[in-house]
């Protein structure tokens, strides 16, 4: 009985660990670091997330979509500045992270825009952010909600 119980507990655990390792191997090329979400008022409908995307692989990675459970919609955006100084947000349909390089998402530049917030995350909350690559690989991270 002890032996059966041991196997019942150990085999799923080992399987789970193996799958995790396989998953990590598939995603290890592209990593998200220093992720955070801007704290906004409780009646806000939108906020932004910032992070650094690093491609440790030997081939370029292309990020094509973003998602998070706290927002009905998430997109990658950047700003372009017109001649008259007006800043215009531009929807990025893909972001290329060249092999061995990093791309920073930061305030005033590229950012992950979180729209239709529900619920509006509060300071100190942890929010999972996921990016999807053209190769249909999900890269996720937990981001803290904070002030700059």
């Amino acid at each position: 009985m002890v032996s059966v119980a041991f196997y019942k507990k150990t085999v799923p655990l080992l399987l789970s660990l193996s799958l995790s390792v396989l998953s990590l191997t598939a995603q290890a090329e592209l990593l998200i670091s220093d992720a955070w979400v801007r704290a906004v008022p409780p009646n806000s409908s939108a906020t932004a997330a910032y992070f650094t995307l690093t491609n440790h692989g030997e081939s370029d990675e292309v990020v094509v979509a973003a998602r998070t459970k706290v927002a009905g919609s998430a997109e990658m955006h950047d700003f372009e500045v017109r001649d008259d100084g007006v800043k215009r947000m531009v929807h990025l349909h893909e972001v290329i992270v060249a092999a061995g390089t990093e791309v920073r998402f930061q305030s005033g530049g590229k950012h992950m825009m979180l729209m239709q917030l529900d619920p509006v995350p509060a300071v100190g909350d942890s929010v999972q952010l996921c990016l999807m690559t053209k190769a249909k690989v999900d890269v996720c991270t937990d981001a803290i909600v904070r002030h700059p």
């Binding site: 008022p41 806000s44 932004a48 700059p148």
Partner: peptide, 14 residues
Amino acid sequence: FTHCPDICPATLFH
């Protein structure tokens, strides 16, 4: 505007 995700809350906070 308050539905602004980046520049407005960033500038207000700053």
